[in-house]
Design a binder for these strands. Sequence first.
DNA 1: TTATATAATGCAAATAAGTGCACCATGGGT
DNA 2: ACCCATGGTGCACTTATTTGCATTATATAA
Lengths: 139, 139
Amino acid sequence: MQQQSRAKPLRYSRQRERLLYLLQSTDTHPTAGWLYDMLKPEFPNLSLGTVYRNLSVLIEQGLVKKIDSGSTFDRYEAKTTPHYHLICHECGTIIDFEEQLFPEIDALVSKAADFAVEGHRIDFFGTCSACRTRNGKNS
Amino acid sequence: MQQQSRAKPLRYSRQRERLLYLLQSTDTHPTAGWLYDMLKPEFPNLSLGTVYRNLSVLIEQGLVKKIDSGSTFDRYEAKTTPHYHLICHECGTIIDFEEQLFPEIDALVSKAADFAVEGHRIDFFGTCSACRTRNGKNS
DNA sequence: TTATATAATGCAAATAAGTGCACCATGGGT
DNA sequence: ACCCATGGTGCACTTATTTGCATTATATAA
Ligand SMILES: [Zn+2]
Ligand SMILES: [Zn+2]
Ligand SMILES: [Zn+2]
Ligand SMILES: [Zn+2]
């Protein structure tokens, strides 16, 4: 299903370097299309396939994470510290939630379910404060 | 981003009824393609678009949930009780984890983050016991 | 510096999922 | 039973993402 990171040799790639740098420079959890648009001026013949492929490479290296936002687009981030996501279903904004609620959760589930947990993901869905303000006081 | 369930009138649809029944009859978290294949004999000119559309309708009704399995396919389930998922990255199996670990988590995050949490999703990634057995004793 | 192996890229084609539209079907009114 | 408004469906097309392949670029050794 997914190959065990078999340390295949990587070569330097300017595009991958800039892609990672770009992702590390924002906290907006951008889409692949946005990353492509931002890099296009610097690499006039960049292709979207390369963006996706480099995102995959960076994900395998553990430097980038893919976020299923619930919309039709996936989003990406380069924040490596563990955190959760607050996903606003109204405007699509993704907010990082830094507090480490349950450090022992993986071990707990591993034991309870006979399943070797290697990591987990927690996403909260709801309405962000900006959208609530815009809507008046409902919800 | 997502419309507030505005109670638009629904009509009876045999295909949607059978789709829901099929989904309720399994705990394998099937893909849209599998559902399509299973329903095709009964509805010879069923189209995949209809499957996707009916899944969306059922999701809006709260009868079905979409699961981002991390693979290239989305998966679906009709289990409405809250539970978490153990997703094996080796064979793709999704196992339900029924224990309600943190009932108060939504309220807690709502308060801490000024975000109106309406629900959450917790997924654990790792290796299932079948795969560990098959692999020998590693991991 | 040149040669060699192979990773990275661009392009186009393939997939999975979502959507517009013309037509069919359900259900409430007559 | 018939009419009609509108929801549901099939089909084809679009969108988001992945992948095959020929070409280009990186890295290492000669
Ligand atoms: Zn919002
Ligand atoms: Zn984040
Ligand atoms: Zn497995
Ligand atoms: Zn489940």
